[in-house]
Design a protein around this nucleic acid. Structure first.
Length: 552
RNA sequence: GCCCCCGUAGCUCAGGGGACAGAGCAGGGGACUUCUAAUCCCAAGGCCGCAGGUUCGAAUCCUGCCGGGGGCGCCA
């Protein structure tokens, strides 16, 4: 709103200064330093060269034009530094923000339509159904789920999907391992050696089909672990189903018909142009069908992505661990060879999670055992702290989770800082109700009384949410929302500390304004926590007990 | 050898073309007759891995090195 007004004013001023053509986009931003104003633009710097002007002179002219025809809330506008145009506004623009937040409410505030109804299938976790989820899986779960939440708020239509590699060598090895343990012998060398195999084998009834029983057992286990984190899927897709429906065979036929394949050494290969493998014997080419007639993972995977597109999604996003990086090109090539546009397939690679326990790295390998399970982490800190932990950092950063630190300092987890802000608000509202302090209708409240730096900071932070969300959606970066939630909590804690609301020496008009500010902060916190998949508790309890807070 | 990610305060990490680089934790010093101190404030802490380049402007973009992680299977 305010942004639009300022950009319009700049555009008009540029035109009056004879700058043409006008720049495609005029950027304004919020400067880091208060003396640089509330908003700032670099247009003069950007346009100076093309316009054959000195940036400061041009900026000065813009300032004159803008001053002559000032936009709403403008106090002063000035040239600064190498040619920035800095706007200083009255506090009214922030009071407008409060009205907007409260008017739109939890459901409406900071919604956008940048997604324009784009349907997007987000596939994440998709761990093999051969055992329980390890800690690393939690990162993809928290990421994928929150990304979907954010996309939905930005006008996309997300669909959460889990792909089960429920056939092939890994499944066979898993079944063999169960059978071996059941019979009291060692699993094969390349089988699964984790402790859970022993436990599951003991559970397995006599005469059960180890593969089918184990598959169901693993699936249930994974779904339960995910549910504890608050993650559920719209669709669980099965590799087997793609084989039995003939989709895999049809995909192979199409690829062959389009000349994307060739036969060598008794196998069917997919031709891949891949700079990473220029010097390999067959370049980056990959086997689709082994010489024994069995497809590799790749062929069903291509069929699977074709299936997703056939179901009508505009965009597919796959969330993969960085250890699958080598599969991006083969899959994209295969999907492209079927005639799909490559832009419809987007693969997000997340760096792996390292788990530390007892000062050493706990290897994440299902086959070797010694795994740290997602359930272990959730047991230790609770679902809220676990989710927030995963969403603290960008996916591009490797994440190290030190279980000893997490356990010892669970109270220091930022999740409690943010949840506490919400709990404080609830407590404040409850106290207001107890004392019979009513909140008058917003349009009867003197918002201009909100002028304390702490009050204004809360409003400035709330204003940023829309930008933060569209950026988080566009960059597929939920952690940006986590950062924002921490900022809003910080702004509120500062306000709470410095600006009493219900104290007897605060006059009713000011109390009313502050109560509405509190309500606006509440709305912002609820929105963010909900999108992050973290609960917004009304009370924080058991500080002394050391139990995970925020659970009810 | 080739491909991808990372290198920012003692530690964990934000910031990813704008103006003097941020937070949390650890460590130092303060603030509860009050709406919950799981909070707040102050001080301290940095050649943003190194070297070039592009730009009015580089932690941010490009190139090359150095260091760490991952990948280069008829496993997934």
């Amino acid at each position: 709103m305010i942004r639009r007004h300022l950009i319009d004013a700049l555009a008009t001023a540029l035109a009056r200064s004879g700058v043409e053509p006008l720049p495609a986009t005029i950027e304004i931003g919020r400067p880091a330093r208060p003396e640089h104003g509330d908003w700032s633009s670099n247009v003069a710097l950007v346009c100076a060269r093309a316009a054959g002007r000195n940036p400061r002179d041009l900026a000065g002219e813009l300032v004159e034009h803008i001053s002559a025809d000032p936009p709403a809330h403008l106090r002063t506008v000035e040239v600064a530094g190498p040619g920035f145009v800095n706007f200083h506004l009255d506090d009214g623009w922030l009071h407008d923000v409060l009205r907007q937040v409260v008017g739109d409410g939890v459901d409406g505030y900071a919604r956008s339509d940048v997604g324009a109804g784009t349907t997007v299938n987000v596939e994440f976790v998709s761990a093999n159904p051969t055992g329980p989820l390890h800690v690393g899986g939690g990162r993809w779960a928290a990421y994928g789920d929150s990304l979907c939440n954010i996309l939905a708020r930005c006008g996309f239509v997300p669909h959460r999907e889990y792909y089960l590699n429920d056939r092939g060598r890994q499944m066979d090895a898993f079944a063999e391992s169960l059978v071996a343990r059941k019979q009291g012998t060692e699993p094969p060398e390349d089988g699964y050696h984790g402790d859970y195999i022993r436990e599951w084998a003991a559970e397995m009834p006599d005469g059960a089909d180890a593969l089918e029983w184990g598959y169901a057992r693993a699936r249930r286990d994974v779904a339960e672990s995910l549910a504890r984190l608050g993650v559920t899927f719209d669709t669980w897709s099965s590799e087997r189903a793609l084989v039995s429906s003939g989709a895999v065979a049809a995909t192979l036929e199409t690829l062959e018909g389009r000349g994307a394949t060739y036969c060598a050494d008794g196998a069917v290969w997919l031709r891949i142009a891949d700079a990473a493998h220029e010097e390999a014997p067959r370049g980056g080419d990959r086997v689709l069908v082994r010489s024994n007639g069995e497809p590799t993972y790749l062929l069903p995977d291509i069929a699977y992505h074709a299936d997703k597109l056939a179901r009508g999604f505009d965009l597919l996003i796959d969330v993969w661990g960085a250890d699958h990086h080598g599969h991006v090109e083969p899959l994209a090539t295969g999907v492209g060879a079927l005639g799909h546009r490559r832009e419809q397939l987007e693969i997000v690679l997340g760096q792996l999670v390292t788990v530390m326990r007892g000062g050493t790295e706990a290897k994440i390998s299902k086959r070797a055992g010694n795994v740290v399970l997602l359930d272990d982490l959730v047991d230790l800190v609770g679902p809220d702290a676990a989710r927030m932990t995963f969403l603290l950092q960008s996916l591009g950063s490797r994440q190290t989770i030190d279980l000893d630190v997490v356990a010892a300092q669970s109270m220091e987890n930022p999740v409690f800082y943010v949840q506490y802000a919400h709990a404080r608000i609830c407590s404040l509202m409850a106290t207001a109700a107890e004392r019979g302090v009513a909140r008058p209708p917003l349009d009867e409240v003197a918002l201009e009384l909100l002028a304390d730096p702490r009050e204004l900071e809360v409003l400035r932070t709330l204003h940023a949410l829309g930008d933060v969300l569209s950026e988080a959606a566009r960059e597929r970066a939920p952690h940006k929302l986590t950062t924002w939630a921490r900022q809003l909590a910080g702004a509120f804690h500062g306000f709470y500390h410095d600006c009493p609301v219900l104290r007897s020496d605060i006059d009713p008009a000011r109390a009313a304004a502050r109560l509405w500010l509190t309500e606006a902060a509440r709305i912002g916190l609820v929105i963010a926590l909900d999108l992050l998949g973290v609960t917004a508790p009304e009370r924080m309890e058991s500080l002394e007990a050391g139990a995970p807070a925020g659970e009810t």
